[in-house]
Design a protein around this nucleic acid. Sequence first.
DNA 1: GTATTATATGCAATAAGTTGCATAGGTATT
DNA 2: AATACCTATGCAACTTATTGCATATAATAC
Lengths: 177, 177
Amino acid sequence: MSLKHAIMVLLETEAGSGYDLLKRFKQRLGFFWQASHQQIYQQLKVMHQEGLINCQLETQQGRPDKKIYEMTSAGHQELVNWLNQACKPQKINDSLLVKLYGGHLLDKTVLLDEIRAHKQQHEKVLAIMLDIEQQYGRLDQGERNSLVFPFLTLRRGILAEQAWLAWSQEVEEFLLV
Amino acid sequence: MSLKHAIMVLLETEAGSGYDLLKRFKQRLGFFWQASHQQIYQQLKVMHQEGLINCQLETQQGRPDKKIYEMTSAGHQELVNWLNQACKPQKINDSLLVKLYGGHLLDKTVLLDEIRAHKQQHEKVLAIMLDIEQQYGRLDQGERNSLVFPFLTLRRGILAEQAWLAWSQEVEEFLLV
DNA sequence: GTATTATATGCAATAAGTTGCATAGGTATT
DNA sequence: AATACCTATGCAACTTATTGCATATAATAC
């Protein structure tokens, strides 16, 4: 299981609460790792029991109290071990392609709508990514250096979105003939 | 859940056993839908109970008996309903990118090895796909027409693999500097 | 001869993920 | 004044997927 390790990658640089992690997931790993709040809170509980992370209660006024989690050395060790192991190939389960595979059972216009919605979604995400890439370009050398790895993952996102768009285009053209 | 629907897409054109379906998954949907034999057998059992498919026992000599499943009209209806509904966005959980995000915690050579293995894997898959594309090109018009939808999914595979390769190249070059 | 792959199905236990519900004050918008 | 979103956490039930085991014959490769 790697949700555990994804959490640790995010906790490693800075301690935080479940809610913080939820936001970090959305902002930083959201393009290639998705986790719901229930999943995160459950995992944090388990990881705490396993001694991978520590927990301190932070009481707040006017807001709900926080549980701030931070890595333990055991957690750090486990993370480094995981990072050093080859990761197994990504599991892909893409229902759009299953649907398209059975496209002969469907009205062409329905398919076309679906493909167009799909294309729009990817255009939107690509625009966001390109914007982040621009921001990265405007940083000074030192900042860029500290963000190279996140930047490389962003590049993956951009190339992946562009590939989706190119394909959507092909399919759309085919469906219009 | 869509394993159910993926199975129905494969059963719709031709009845078959769990074992047949396992092979069809590997050959036809394997690039974008992965399912283990346990998953398939369990689902078939459930789908049979739900009346989406019928089952006939085929006794064999020298080989284990088969259970041949075929779509019922209820199953067909359910499949068409599903196909007509917009599918929810694909969930991506890619541990390689999580690892790369935390790349500062790792030795560069370890990362480089991982990226190279990743690249090789995608080169291999791309070669297979390009080969299938060639075969498709050599078919006559009628056959090509009956396979356009599978062909479009193959195109997706090809573009996706090429995107992975372009990215791997970028990352490799970066790691070598 | 031996080892592997292919054929064919399945159970049981565990792990992981989803869905729905629940709480509760603060801030911002209309 | 009402609505919606943000902060912050969690339980419980359910569904889905994984891992490990189990069986048994035939064909093919080395």
